[in-house]
């Protein structure tokens, strides 16, 4: 019925809808073919023994995993808090009317965003060598928090700045016209709204931080300070088997998937409120 209007006898020409349907069926057929080929061709025993060896799963879970899991969480949480505080200061500096504050903050942000995180961590691992007697408290947490927090602060500063700028200018005008000094207006009116706006992107940054925390092994931590990646990797290489790494990877998903879900929920809600 789709060709009814054209008077050309285009018998062979399919209507766009029919063609789309045919393409869809072809895609399904291809997919099924691949799955069957993979299921028949793969060596399932081999795959299981390399990736999911049950005795190794058990060993990984019981040995140091709870500690590594805890370390990943503690590293991330501390770096997040530090990054948030520092990021807020940097964002306010970036929006300051005092030129040098803006320059310092911009330089800081561009510097730490431009460097690979691992370079920052390597630098931190060398600091105690370069500055003799330098001790960062709460070893190993202190060092990790500072290193990871510095990197986080640069990313968060940009997010927070965007959030502050997304608060309508009428809000600061209303606050100031009530006689609030700029500082009070910022604390009571602007920042609470800015943080509400940026909760989803900030949560995304937590997810990135969770993953970036896997790089802190370059700081040369002792076994008690291992996080998930270092722990899983050591165990994997000592056993010449990937199972521990798979278990560690699964732990990351346990942390990050719920966070992504929460972000999606929050974004959907914000869209509805707008």
């Amino acid at each position: 019925m789709s060709t009814a209007i054209t008077d050309a006898p285009a018998k062979k020409k399919l209507s766009p809808r029919r063609r789309a349907q045919r393409i869809r069926w072809t895609q399904y057929a291809l997919l099924v073919a691949f799955v069957i080929a993979f299921a028949l061709g793969a060596d399932w025993g081999q795959i299981q023994s390399v990736f999911f060896r049950s005795d190794l799963v058990k060993a990984t879970l019981t040995e140091g995993l709870p500690n590594a899991f805890k370390n990943t969480l503690v590293y991330t949480a501390g770096a997040f808090v530090l990054g948030l505080l520092l990021g807020t200061v940097l964002a306010l500096m970036r929006l300051s009317s005092v030129g040098p504050y803006r320059w310092i903050s911009t330089a800081w942000i561009e510097f730490f965003r431009g460097l690979p995180a691992i370079v920052v961590f390597i630098a931190f691992s060398l600091l105690p060598l370069a500055f003799e007697g330098l001790v960062i408290p709460y070893d190993p947490y202190g060092t990790v928090w500072v290193a990871l927090g510095l990197v986080a602060s640069a990313y968060m500063a940009e997010t927070i700045r965007a959030g502050i700028q997304a608060v309508p200018p009428g809000q600061i005008e209303a606050a100031r016209s009530l006689g609030m000094p700029a500082g009070v207006a910022t604390r009571k009116i602007i920042l609470p709204q800015a943080f509400r706006i940026i909760t989803p992107p900030l949560t995304n940054e937590v997810i990135l931080l969770v993953k970036d925390s896997s790089l802190v092994y370059v700081l040369g931590l002792s076994a008690a300070g291992y996080e998930l990646t270092k722990y899983g990797r050591d165990l994997a290489s000592s056993n010449a088997n990937l199972t521990p790494l798979v278990v560690a990877g699964f732990c990351y998903l346990v942390i990050t998937l719920p966070l992504s879900y929460v972000v999606r929920r929050m974004e959907a809600r914000q869209k509805k409120e707008r």
Binding site: P168, G170, Q171, E173, A174, A175, R176, S177, L178, G179, M180, P181, K188, I189, P192, Q193, R196
Partner: peptide, 29 residues
Amino acid sequence: DAIRRNMGMVFQQFNLFPHLSVLDNCTVA
């Protein structure tokens, strides 16, 4: 700031503080 305290301002777009309840809007300052 002291002068503004003695001067109320009402805007075309209301400019209420959306993160505060009506009561808190009236008490925060």
